[in-house]
Amino acid sequence: MKKKTIAIDMDGVLADVESQIIDHYNKAYGTNLTKEGIQGLSEEEAFKERELLFEILNKDNFFRTLPVMPDAVESVRELQKNFEIFIVSAATEFPISLAEKVAWLGEHFPFIKWENIVLCGSKRIINTDYLIDDHCKNLDYCMGKPIMFTAFHNINQTHHLRVNNWKEAVAVLNETL
């Protein structure tokens, strides 16, 4: 019997990009943004200095040093027992991130085979049974069942099934078996 498939986004789902951006942004711009303070804001509202944000996202080692989301490693291992897992990241927007993301996955998720890592531009081509992502721009085009992973910028979005953390994601997906 063929396993169902799950595509999992990296930034904001497996990797805590919010904390990393806030830390770099505060240091570079002299602000004191917090995760709590940007809840419900769009990325443009939270990080008003767009040029600075793009500089940060294009810095060497930015993506390589992202913290892992709580329970992500254990949860993906658990899901791998019953699902085929693909890691899918719209990485080509920041070309420097390509090698860094592969190295990050190798360090934190070495049990994910290289052929199950998809670094792309648009996720509209991804055809899996489920997509876990924090951006509606990806979930809205999901060919399978979209699952929105909570992030500051999607708190006010309600048109997709939401999970707030990895334990909830595992519970929701295990219910589908």
Rank of each mutant, 00 (worst) to 15 (best):
I22H: 08
G106T: 12
E44M: 03
E51H: 14
T34G: 02
N165A: 12
D129Y: 01
V68N: 03
F83W: 06
F47K: 00
K35P: 05
L105D: 14
G12W: 04
I126K: 13
E93F: 14
D60Y: 11
A72E: 07
L41H: 12
G12Q: 03
N58Q: 02
H153K: 15
C136Q: 15
N82C: 07
K3P: 04
L105S: 06
F47T: 00
H108N: 12
E18C: 10
F83C: 03
K35S: 09
F83S: 03
R162Y: 14
I126N: 10
Y29K: 14
T176R: 03
G12R: 06
L52H: 01
N138F: 07
A169F: 03
E84K: 12
T92Y: 12
N127G: 06
W114S: 14
E43F: 14
C120Q: 14
I126D: 05
F62A: 14
L177M: 15
Y25R: 03
H24R: 06
L66A: 01
H159Q: 12
L53H: 04
N174C: 08
L41M: 15
P110S: 07
A28H: 02
L177F: 13
A91T: 03
G106V: 09
Y29L: 06
I117T: 08
V170F: 04
K59D: 11
D16Y: 01
H159E: 13
A15C: 11
E84R: 11
L53Y: 01
W104T: 08
K4F: 00
T176A: 09
S19A: 08
A72S: 12
I8Q: 14
L131C: 11
G40D: 04
E107L: 14
D134Q: 11
E168N: 01
E100F: 05
V102C: 04
E74C: 05
H24W: 14
K145G: 06
